[in-house]
Design a protein around this nucleic acid. Structure first.
Length: 430
RNA sequence: GGAGGCGUGACCGAGCGGUUUAAGGUGUCAGUCUCGAAAACUGAAGUACGGGUAACCGUACCGUAGGUUCAAAUCCUACCGCCUCCGCCA
């Protein structure tokens, strides 16, 4: 959520920011509601002040006790004040209605892009910031689906049988490899990057989903448990950020850095037909998410730090990747600035997004009411998060990058301790 | 699932219709004392919105949402959360 004061004091800033994003919002309607709301608020406050004064007088008269004249005066005052209550109630209802309408609209307004975010309307205009490692050379490896199937690492057909498409089953060494990746990610962040490990619920309530910005706008992308009014998390960002909702965090404890592994659930409602084959777009996948809470002045340094944390993992896995800086038009709903990490898949012959590192500034903190006391002032802090990392696409890149000549898979050194020392998943002899 | 208890400021905790301006304590900040610190003493200090150049004034906020009343932290209803006991299951 944006600072509500902006709608009164500097609508142009909002207008410009939304234009950069290409977001359509009826700002004029919001401004008008706000003006009307304030008008009513003024007269409402006045009415309440009158009533309070009258009530005080009544209290005084009553305290006079046995004086019959005072008792009579009190009776009359009560009679006179009664109608005030009705008027207050009517005005209050009008005010509440306007406020609710404003809030509903405000929750649908995306964050404003940071000044450093490049201009652009779509992913085509994103900027490549850096590239690490060398482009795969040599004969084109087998496609990850074929390679994985031959090695017996996963089973899409049976996953579809018990649930539907987009819900793969990991089998044998495939399951272990996935678990190895997650353990490596988590252990590495905790041991080397100072993150505290969190294992949160994967079902959350509506308020949490609003707090991080998934709702109300993206309800159709979320899996719901209707009977309990709960949602399956699309990312650990939701429970881990909202952990601190309605709290005032000790400034001395900042920055707070959490790393959380959860399964993630996404309906991908708007993505029919896109990447439906294989691992590239799943309804259920596993991810380690990094979440940070910082004081406002330090969030951009933290943003770079998070990006580095995610990059390190890819380097340790020996994967060729690049860093993308999203342009204004491609930014996610709540992000003020965002880097994507894309890993190269040599058989797929394209870059695959494996991490999205975003700074939300105070956008989520306002929604979830997460504050800190800084220099004697209570204020919203900044939240950030980034994947570190998501397994399916990393697995794809591993299968295609570290494939042996006969279709086996070399296990990167950092994963071997998690694979019982295994150095290679060998191709089955024909 | 059944019965009972409890949700109050950064934290603990009193208040259970009207001088509440939410007592008291802890913690925080400033001052006195001290070479400096601790202790002690004195004082300051909530958040949001609106009005005003400002001092300040008004309004709202005691888990959440309704209700009763001239007036609600206080009474009523529902919901949420926590605790205790019982039952059931691991």
């Amino acid at each position: 959520m944006l600072d509500p004061r902006l709608y009164r004091e500097d609508v142009d800033t909002i207008r410009r920011g939304l234009e950069r994003r290409g977001a359509k919002v009826d700002l004029d309607a919001m401004v008008n509601i706000d003006i009307e709301k304030r008008k009513i608020n003024g007269s409402l406050d006045q009415l309440k002040a009158e009533r309070n004064a009258a009530s005080d007088k009544i209290a005084q008269l009553k305290r006079a006790g046995n004086d019959p004249a005072a008792a009579e005066a009190a009776k009359q005052a009560i009679e006179k004040t009664r109608s005030l209550g009705d008027e207050i109630k009517a005005q209050q209802d009008k005010f509440d209605d306007l406020e609710n309408r404003f809030r509903e609209m405000a929750l649908m307004v995306p964050n404003l892009p940071h000044a450093t975010v490049p201009e652009g309307r779509s992913a085509a205009e994103n900027k490549v910031v850096s590239e690490w490692g060398e482009k795969f050379s040599g004969p084109k490896p087998k496609h990850h689906l074929d390679a994985g199937k031959e090695l017996g690492l996963f089973d899409f057909e049976r996953g579809a049988k018990i649930t539907g498409s987009g819900f793969p089953i990991y089998v044998g060494l495939g399951a272990r490899l996935e678990r190895a990746l997650l353990n490596f990610f988590l252990d590495y962040h905790v041991a080397n990057h100072g993150f505290t490990e969190i294992s949160p619920p994967v079902l959350v309530n509506r308020q949490a989903m609003i707090g991080t910005g998934q709702l109300p706008k993206f309800e159709e992308d979320m899996y719901q448990v209707a009977a309990d009014g709960l949602f399956l998390v699309p990312t650990a960002e939701v429970p881990v950020t909202n952990m601190h909702a309605n709290e005032i965090l000790d400034a001395a404890a900042l920055p707070i850095a959490y790393a959380a592994y959860t399964t993630c659930f996404r309906r991908e409602a708007g993505a029919w037909g896109k990447d439906t084959r294989g691992f590239l777009r799943l309804h259920q996948f596993d991810k380690v998410e990094m979440v940070m809470f910082t004081e406002p002045a330090k969030s951009y340094a933290a943003h770079e730090h998070l990006r580095t944390c995610a990059e390190t993992l890819l380097q340790k896995l020996g994967l060729h990747y690049r860093v993308i800086e999203l342009c204004a038009g491609d930014l996610g709903f709540g992000a003020a600035k965002c880097y994507d990490l894309e890993v190269w898949a040599p058989a797929e012959e394209r870059w695959l997004e494996v991490s999205s590192v975003s700074n939300f500034e105070d956008f989520q903190a306002r929604r979830a009411n997460i504050r800190t006391k800084l220099d004697g002032k209570t204020q919203y802090l900044h939240t950030l998060n980034g994947s570190g990392l998501a397994t399916p696409r990393v697995l794809v890149a591993l299968l295609e990058t570290h494939q042996t000549a006969d279709g086996g898979l070399r296990i990167p050194e950092v994963l071997r301790p998690y694979m019982g020392g295994l150095t290679e998943i060998k191709a089955k002899k024909k």
